[in-house]
Design a protein around this nucleic acid. Structure first.
Lengths: 132, 132
DNA sequence: CCGTATCCTCCTCGATACTG
DNA sequence: CAGTATCGAGGAGGATACGG
Protein backbone atom coordinates (compact mmCIF):
# COMPACT_ATOMS: atom_id res chain seq x y z
CA UNK A 1 0.00 0.00 0.00
CA UNK A 2 1.20 3.46 -0.88
CA UNK A 3 2.26 6.08 1.61
CA UNK A 4 -0.39 8.76 2.09
CA UNK A 5 0.33 12.39 1.54
CA UNK A 6 -0.57 14.85 4.27
CA UNK A 7 -3.41 16.05 2.05
CA UNK A 8 -4.85 12.56 1.77
CA UNK A 9 -4.66 12.06 5.50
CA UNK A 10 -6.55 15.30 6.10
CA UNK A 11 -9.22 14.36 3.60
CA UNK A 12 -9.65 10.97 5.20
CA UNK A 13 -9.99 12.47 8.64
CA UNK A 14 -12.61 14.88 7.34
CA UNK A 15 -14.63 12.11 5.73
CA UNK A 16 -14.62 10.04 8.90
CA UNK A 17 -15.60 13.08 10.92
CA UNK A 18 -18.48 13.93 8.60
CA UNK A 19 -19.72 10.35 8.78
CA UNK A 20 -19.54 10.50 12.55
CA UNK A 21 -21.56 13.71 12.59
CA UNK A 22 -24.21 12.31 10.25
CA UNK A 23 -24.89 9.43 12.64
CA UNK A 24 -24.46 11.32 15.92
CA UNK A 25 -27.81 11.36 17.76
CA UNK A 26 -27.18 14.77 19.33
CA UNK A 27 -26.34 16.34 16.01
CA UNK A 28 -29.39 14.84 14.37
CA UNK A 29 -31.60 16.06 17.19
CA UNK A 30 -30.20 19.59 16.87
CA UNK A 31 -30.74 19.59 13.13
CA UNK A 32 -34.32 18.45 13.62
CA UNK A 33 -35.43 20.91 16.31
CA UNK A 34 -33.62 23.85 14.78
CA UNK A 35 -35.68 23.57 11.60
CA UNK A 36 -37.34 26.93 11.42
CA UNK A 37 -40.92 25.82 12.11
CA UNK A 38 -40.60 22.64 14.16
CA UNK A 39 -40.68 24.22 17.58
CA UNK A 40 -43.71 26.33 16.71
CA UNK A 41 -45.66 23.41 15.28
CA UNK A 42 -44.91 21.32 18.35
CA UNK A 43 -45.98 24.14 20.61
CA UNK A 44 -49.25 24.61 18.75
CA UNK A 45 -50.02 20.92 18.88
CA UNK A 46 -49.16 20.70 22.57
CA UNK A 47 -52.53 22.34 23.22
CA UNK A 48 -54.28 19.50 21.42
CA UNK A 49 -54.97 18.25 17.88
CA UNK A 50 -55.17 20.90 15.19
CA UNK A 51 -56.35 21.05 11.61
CA UNK A 52 -53.95 22.07 8.87
CA UNK A 53 -55.70 25.42 8.47
CA UNK A 54 -55.55 26.05 12.23
CA UNK A 55 -51.80 25.59 12.19
CA UNK A 56 -51.43 27.82 9.15
CA UNK A 57 -53.35 30.54 10.97
CA UNK A 58 -51.34 30.35 14.18
CA UNK A 59 -47.97 30.32 12.40
CA UNK A 60 -48.63 33.59 10.66
CA UNK A 61 -45.37 33.70 8.74
CA UNK A 62 -45.21 30.18 7.34
CA UNK A 63 -45.63 29.33 3.66
CA UNK A 64 -47.75 26.36 2.66
CA UNK A 65 -44.69 24.66 1.34
CA UNK A 66 -42.76 24.88 4.59
CA UNK A 67 -45.72 23.97 6.76
CA UNK A 68 -46.44 20.84 4.75
CA UNK A 69 -42.76 19.92 4.60
CA UNK A 70 -42.37 20.35 8.35
CA UNK A 71 -45.47 18.30 9.11
CA UNK A 72 -44.39 15.50 6.75
CA UNK A 73 -40.97 15.27 8.36
CA UNK A 74 -42.42 15.20 11.84
CA UNK A 75 -44.88 12.52 10.79
CA UNK A 76 -42.08 10.50 9.25
CA UNK A 77 -40.12 10.70 12.49
CA UNK A 78 -43.09 9.46 14.51
CA UNK A 79 -43.55 12.73 16.37
CA UNK A 80 -47.10 13.35 15.18
CA UNK A 81 -49.93 11.57 13.40
CA UNK A 82 -51.84 12.74 10.35
CA UNK A 83 -55.52 11.83 10.08
CA UNK A 84 -57.53 12.46 6.93
CA UNK A 85 -61.31 12.64 7.24
CA UNK A 86 -63.21 12.24 3.97
CA UNK A 87 -65.64 15.08 4.32
CA UNK A 88 -66.37 17.71 1.72
CA UNK A 89 -64.19 19.59 1.82
CA UNK A 90 -61.40 17.38 3.10
CA UNK A 91 -60.35 17.66 6.74
CA UNK A 92 -56.89 16.80 8.03
CA UNK A 93 -55.99 16.67 11.70
CA UNK A 94 -52.53 16.55 13.22
CA UNK A 95 -51.87 15.25 16.71
CA UNK A 96 -48.74 14.70 18.76
CA UNK A 97 -47.61 11.18 19.55
CA UNK A 98 -46.15 10.42 23.00
CA UNK A 99 -42.72 10.76 21.41
CA UNK A 100 -43.70 14.15 20.06
CA UNK A 101 -44.95 15.27 23.46
CA UNK A 102 -41.67 14.15 24.95
CA UNK A 103 -39.82 16.36 22.50
CA UNK A 104 -42.18 19.17 23.40
CA UNK A 105 -41.13 18.80 27.03
CA UNK A 106 -37.49 19.05 26.02
CA UNK A 107 -38.20 22.23 24.12
CA UNK A 108 -39.89 23.56 27.24
CA UNK A 109 -36.63 23.07 29.12
CA UNK A 110 -34.81 24.88 26.35
CA UNK A 111 -37.27 27.73 26.63
CA UNK A 112 -36.64 28.00 30.35
CA UNK A 113 -32.91 28.21 29.83
CA UNK A 114 -33.37 30.80 27.12
CA UNK A 115 -35.60 33.03 29.23
CA UNK A 116 -33.21 32.79 32.14
CA UNK A 117 -29.92 33.29 30.34
CA UNK A 118 -30.45 35.11 27.06
CA UNK A 119 -30.54 38.49 28.84
CA UNK A 120 -26.97 37.75 29.99
CA UNK A 121 -26.05 37.03 26.39
CA UNK A 122 -27.58 40.34 25.30
CA UNK A 123 -25.57 42.17 27.91
CA UNK A 124 -22.32 40.47 26.93
CA UNK A 125 -23.02 41.25 23.32
CA UNK A 126 -23.50 44.94 24.02
CA UNK A 127 -20.26 45.07 25.99
CA UNK A 128 -18.43 43.35 23.14
CA UNK A 129 -19.86 45.68 20.52
CA UNK A 130 -18.99 48.79 22.52
CA UNK A 131 -15.31 48.00 22.97
CA UNK A 132 -13.53 49.54 20.06
CA UNK B 1 -57.17 55.80 6.37
CA UNK B 2 -57.62 53.41 3.50
CA UNK B 3 -59.10 49.97 3.78
CA UNK B 4 -56.44 47.27 3.58
CA UNK B 5 -56.56 44.55 1.02
CA UNK B 6 -56.33 40.95 2.12
CA UNK B 7 -52.85 40.88 0.65
CA UNK B 8 -51.74 43.83 2.76
CA UNK B 9 -53.15 42.28 5.89
CA UNK B 10 -51.25 39.05 5.25
CA UNK B 11 -48.02 40.95 4.65
CA UNK B 12 -48.45 42.90 7.87
CA UNK B 13 -49.09 39.76 9.85
CA UNK B 14 -45.98 38.19 8.37
CA UNK B 15 -43.84 41.19 9.27
CA UNK B 16 -45.05 41.22 12.85
CA UNK B 17 -44.48 37.49 13.11
CA UNK B 18 -40.93 37.75 11.77
CA UNK B 19 -40.18 40.53 14.25
CA UNK B 20 -41.53 38.39 17.05
CA UNK B 21 -39.33 35.49 16.01
CA UNK B 22 -36.24 37.68 15.81
CA UNK B 23 -36.64 38.72 19.43
CA UNK B 24 -37.91 35.42 20.82
CA UNK B 25 -35.35 34.05 23.31
CA UNK B 26 -36.11 30.43 22.49
CA UNK B 27 -35.69 30.98 18.78
CA UNK B 28 -32.43 32.83 19.28
CA UNK B 29 -31.13 30.06 21.53
CA UNK B 30 -32.00 27.43 18.93
CA UNK B 31 -30.31 29.39 16.19
CA UNK B 32 -27.19 29.72 18.32
CA UNK B 33 -26.78 26.10 19.44
CA UNK B 34 -27.70 24.65 16.08
CA UNK B 35 -24.75 26.37 14.44
CA UNK B 36 -22.82 23.50 13.03
CA UNK B 37 -19.76 23.73 15.28
CA UNK B 38 -21.03 25.33 18.48
CA UNK B 39 -21.88 22.14 20.33
CA UNK B 40 -18.55 20.56 19.46
CA UNK B 41 -16.54 23.60 20.55
CA UNK B 42 -18.42 23.75 23.82
CA UNK B 43 -17.86 20.07 24.40
CA UNK B 44 -14.13 20.37 23.74
CA UNK B 45 -13.81 23.32 26.08
CA UNK B 46 -15.81 21.58 28.80
CA UNK B 47 -12.68 19.52 29.48
CA UNK B 48 -10.71 22.71 30.17
CA UNK B 49 -9.08 25.62 28.31
CA UNK B 50 -7.78 24.86 24.84
CA UNK B 51 -5.53 26.54 22.34
CA UNK B 52 -6.80 27.39 18.87
CA UNK B 53 -4.73 24.63 17.33
CA UNK B 54 -5.99 22.10 19.86
CA UNK B 55 -9.56 22.87 18.90
CA UNK B 56 -8.72 22.67 15.22
CA UNK B 57 -7.22 19.23 15.77
CA UNK B 58 -10.17 17.85 17.73
CA UNK B 59 -12.79 19.16 15.30
CA UNK B 60 -11.31 17.30 12.38
CA UNK B 61 -13.78 18.57 9.79
CA UNK B 62 -13.80 22.28 10.56
CA UNK B 63 -12.32 24.94 8.29
CA UNK B 64 -10.26 27.76 9.77
CA UNK B 65 -12.91 30.18 8.71
CA UNK B 66 -15.75 28.44 10.50
CA UNK B 67 -13.73 27.73 13.64
CA UNK B 68 -12.72 31.36 13.97
CA UNK B 69 -16.21 32.58 13.20
CA UNK B 70 -17.74 30.22 15.76
CA UNK B 71 -15.25 31.23 18.44
CA UNK B 72 -15.79 34.94 17.77
CA UNK B 73 -19.55 34.59 18.06
CA UNK B 74 -19.30 32.62 21.27
CA UNK B 75 -16.90 35.20 22.67
CA UNK B 76 -19.26 37.99 21.70
CA UNK B 77 -22.12 36.25 23.48
CA UNK B 78 -20.08 35.91 26.67
CA UNK B 79 -19.92 32.12 26.49
CA UNK B 80 -16.15 31.92 26.36
CA UNK B 81 -13.07 34.10 26.84
CA UNK B 82 -10.18 34.60 24.46
CA UNK B 83 -6.73 35.14 25.92
CA UNK B 84 -3.75 36.13 23.79
CA UNK B 85 -0.27 35.47 25.17
CA UNK B 86 2.53 37.38 23.50
CA UNK B 87 5.00 34.57 23.02
CA UNK B 88 6.80 33.69 19.84
CA UNK B 89 4.89 32.29 18.16
CA UNK B 90 1.63 33.73 19.42
CA UNK B 91 -0.51 31.65 21.75
CA UNK B 92 -4.28 32.01 22.09
CA UNK B 93 -6.31 30.19 24.70
CA UNK B 94 -10.06 29.78 24.83
CA UNK B 95 -11.93 29.04 28.03
CA UNK B 96 -15.60 28.69 28.94
CA UNK B 97 -17.25 31.31 31.10
CA UNK B 98 -19.81 30.21 33.74
CA UNK B 99 -22.49 31.13 31.22
CA UNK B 100 -20.80 28.93 28.65
CA UNK B 101 -20.60 26.04 31.10
CA UNK B 102 -24.27 26.47 31.81
CA UNK B 103 -25.04 26.13 28.13
CA UNK B 104 -22.80 23.07 28.06
CA UNK B 105 -25.00 21.53 30.75
CA UNK B 106 -28.08 22.21 28.68
CA UNK B 107 -26.50 20.50 25.70
CA UNK B 108 -25.78 17.54 27.95
CA UNK B 109 -29.51 17.25 28.64
CA UNK B 110 -30.15 17.42 24.92
CA UNK B 111 -27.65 14.64 24.37
CA UNK B 112 -29.42 12.46 26.94
CA UNK B 113 -32.76 12.93 25.22
CA UNK B 114 -31.19 12.19 21.86
CA UNK B 115 -29.56 8.97 23.00
CA UNK B 116 -32.76 7.83 24.65
CA UNK B 117 -35.25 8.70 21.91
CA UNK B 118 -33.51 8.90 18.55
CA UNK B 119 -33.66 5.12 18.14
CA UNK B 120 -37.47 5.45 18.29
CA UNK B 121 -37.26 8.09 15.59
CA UNK B 122 -35.16 5.78 13.44
CA UNK B 123 -37.70 3.02 13.85
CA UNK B 124 -40.61 5.29 12.96
CA UNK B 125 -38.73 6.51 9.93
CA UNK B 126 -38.14 3.00 8.65
CA UNK B 127 -41.81 2.15 9.09
CA UNK B 128 -42.79 5.30 7.22
CA UNK B 129 -40.39 4.64 4.38
CA UNK B 130 -41.54 1.04 3.97
CA UNK B 131 -45.25 1.80 3.57
CA UNK B 132 -45.89 2.25 -0.10
C1' DC C 1 -59.57 22.59 2.17
C1' DC C 2 -55.24 20.63 1.65
C1' DG C 3 -51.96 20.23 -0.56
C1' DT C 4 -48.02 19.74 -5.06
C1' DA C 5 -44.87 21.77 -8.53
C1' DT C 6 -41.88 25.17 -10.12
C1' DC C 7 -38.91 28.78 -10.06
C1' DC C 8 -35.88 31.92 -7.86
C1' DT C 9 -33.22 34.30 -4.34
C1' DC C 10 -30.46 34.70 -0.49
C1' DC C 11 -26.98 33.20 2.48
C1' DT C 12 -24.36 29.84 4.65
C1' DC C 13 -20.37 27.24 4.36
C1' DG C 14 -16.10 25.34 2.33
C1' DA C 15 -11.87 25.89 -0.50
C1' DT C 16 -8.06 28.51 -1.29
C1' DA C 17 -4.64 31.86 -0.79
C1' DC C 18 -2.35 35.24 1.85
C1' DT C 19 -0.58 37.94 6.50
C1' DG C 20 1.24 39.59 11.28
C1' DC D 1 0.55 29.93 15.34
C1' DA D 2 -3.51 32.14 14.56
C1' DG D 3 -5.80 34.20 11.97
C1' DT D 4 -8.07 37.41 7.42
C1' DA D 5 -9.82 37.93 2.53
C1' DT D 6 -12.10 36.42 -1.35
C1' DC D 7 -14.71 33.56 -4.32
C1' DG D 8 -17.96 30.09 -5.65
C1' DA D 9 -21.27 26.13 -5.13
C1' DG D 10 -25.32 24.37 -2.99
C1' DG D 11 -29.30 24.20 -0.39
C1' DA D 12 -32.97 26.19 2.41
C1' DG D 13 -36.85 28.63 2.16
C1' DG D 14 -40.31 31.96 -0.01
C1' DA D 15 -43.60 33.36 -4.03
C1' DT D 16 -46.60 31.87 -7.15
C1' DA D 17 -49.56 29.00 -9.71
C1' DC D 18 -52.09 24.89 -10.23
C1' DG D 19 -54.52 20.12 -8.86
C1' DG D 20 -57.68 16.58 -6.30
Amino acid sequence: MATQTAQQRRDDAKLRFDAYLAGCPSRRLLDRIADKWVALVLKSLAAGPQRYSDLARQLAGVSQKMLTQTLRNLERDGLLTRTVTAEVPVRVDYELTPLGSSLGQLLGDLKSWAEEHMPDVDEARQRYDRRT
